[in-house]
Simulated scan of single mutants.
Amino acid sequence: MATRIDDCGYWQVVWLDPRAVRPVCVDGPACTVVGWEALRAAYPDTPPVEQPGWWSPRWEAAAAVALAHLLALSGGKRVAVPDGPVAEAFRKALDTLLPAGPSARNLVLAGPGLSGVTAEIALVPRHPQSGEVWPCGAGAVVPLAADVWMYMAFNDDRRLTLAAAGMPDIVRRDDPPPRLPWRPFRPDVGVFLHTLARLPAAREPWLRAIYDHVEDRRYSLPCF
């Protein structure tokens, strides 16, 4: 009745055979859509690093999709990225693919639970049930998978140091120690190219040149 695609580096998807299934009406909504403010409690975030130090494929794919949208919105000009996990996911790729020079646009995290900000480009969550993108007043928005966005927005990823004996109980402990990656983060190049090729902006010469550059050097670029 269906075919399921479940392979490393690809989104999982199920294709239903229209000859074997049919839609059925139900009373009321098929499922309750969780509100934005309850999203953190209903859906856990996804840590970026898995055991034994591999970057999460979910992060690599989600960052690749967001990177394609971010490049399209950049207009070919430098984008300033905030420090922390956002910089770890996007700064190296943006610095590699966009021309050198002063930053022309700023990227910020925006979404439920964060204070309102005004920026040229906002990195916002995409609802895991409805697919809706968080609405905000930024000049442009880049959607990101909600579980990855929540980790970027709310996880305290500071590296802790050893302290002398007798620490107060209120001090945050580091037990067990955090998972650390064995290599720098790289977005999934296949997902990036697949997404970028399907954006309307990819027809513009400057963005097409970036696509061709990555396609020709996908195994030698430091950001992939």
Rank of each mutant, 00 (worst) to 15 (best):
P178H: 04
W15T: 03
T96R: 13
R91N: 13
R208S: 03
V33I: 08
P200H: 12
L221R: 04
V26R: 02
Q51K: 15
A145K: 08
L109V: 07
L196T: 12
A38E: 10
A202E: 02
A38P: 03
Y151M: 12
A42E: 12
G76P: 06
R173K: 09
R19K: 05
P128A: 04
G113P: 00
E120L: 02
A197G: 06
N155V: 05
A38D: 14
R78K: 12
C8D: 09
A20P: 01
P48R: 06
P125I: 05
V13P: 01
G131D: 10
F224W: 05
S74A: 05
R179T: 13
P128T: 06
G53P: 10
P177E: 10
P85F: 03
M167D: 15
D6C: 05
A72W: 01
R172M: 11
R183C: 11
E60F: 00
D27E: 15
T46L: 08
R78T: 12
H194W: 06
A145T: 13
N155Q: 13
S220T: 13
G139Q: 09
L144A: 04
G113E: 02
W11H: 00
V65M: 03
R126G: 00
R179S: 15
L71K: 07
H194S: 11
V49W: 13
L109K: 00
